[in-house]
Amino acid sequence: MVHRRAFLAGSLAGLTLAGCGVTRGENAGSRRLRMMIPNRPGGGYDLTGRTAVRVMEEEKITPRFEVFNVVGASGTVAMARLINEAGNDNLLQCMGLGVVGAVYTNKSDARVSIATPIARLIEEVEGVVVPADSPFKSIDDFVAAWKADVKGMTVGGGSSPGGPDHLFPMEVARAVGIKPADVNYTPYDGGGEILAALLGSKLDMATTGLGEFTEQIKQGKVRVLATSGEKAQKGAHAPALKDAAIALTFTNWRGILAPPEISTERRQELIDLLQQMHDSQGWKDVLAEREWTDAFVTGEEFGTFLKAQDERVATTLKELGLA
């Protein structure tokens, strides 16, 4: 809300990338590609998109690769642009779960399922987090209290309605038999404000990407009651929802799309580029360094996943009157 700036990306990117490799013959990657980022520099998609591009350049999978940001309506503007660029087979877009929801809350027709799916790259597990002095010792404690007084329990998250931190508590509510529309959810302006609210015990519970609070969890300043992945998360000291008998898995993922109507051959070429990136040592290093969870799937498989996600998000948001 406060800071929205953009920068003459090209010039600086050029500076930092000087000395990168040029083409390596007439392969698929030798064409000049562009990567569209649907939020501002420094945001989550920006970090993922730019890192992927940097790895591709450094590993000489592609020549110089232009990155640009299209900001607006939590990614809806970028999504509309991608759909409008139908047939442009040198354009890629980094996106994720947040964009799927934003398209609905902004009543846009540029559904993610229209675009050409290339690859899902990473995912992050969400956590049910409480202040250190919270009376709830387990997810069962919390759910019991929540069921007893839905509206009185304050839930906060770092995303606006339609974003991952908002969708997750709604799905948890539905899984335990609470009407999502009754959930008292307050959006905060990013992870920093959520953390402040937790440290000051202003919230009963927060839903947020676990990566944001790694250190605070380690120091015991906030506690995790449950995580949203298939398995319990290392370092969270809490079970997965599934293990706590709540039938729900939920991950915040990020991936790459291309505009609609590109040729099958070109699509395969683009998938191959990302496959090469995924297999490179550079990408493995990045995953370790950033503590990102690898969730690589490509092409049809990603397309199926994307459709399922689209429907799932639409169902939740319709129930809330947001789509």
Binding site: M1, G72, A73, V77, A80, N106, P161, G162, P187, L322
Partner: peptide, 21 residues
């Protein structure tokens, strides 16, 4: 722009570019 709490657009005249305020 979009209402921060409910995500509803206000006074944006249907222009998505206005929904960030």
């Amino acid at each position: 722009g979009a209402d921060l709490l409910t995500g509803q657009n206000r006074m944006t005249l249907g222009v998505p570019l206005l929904s960030d305020g």
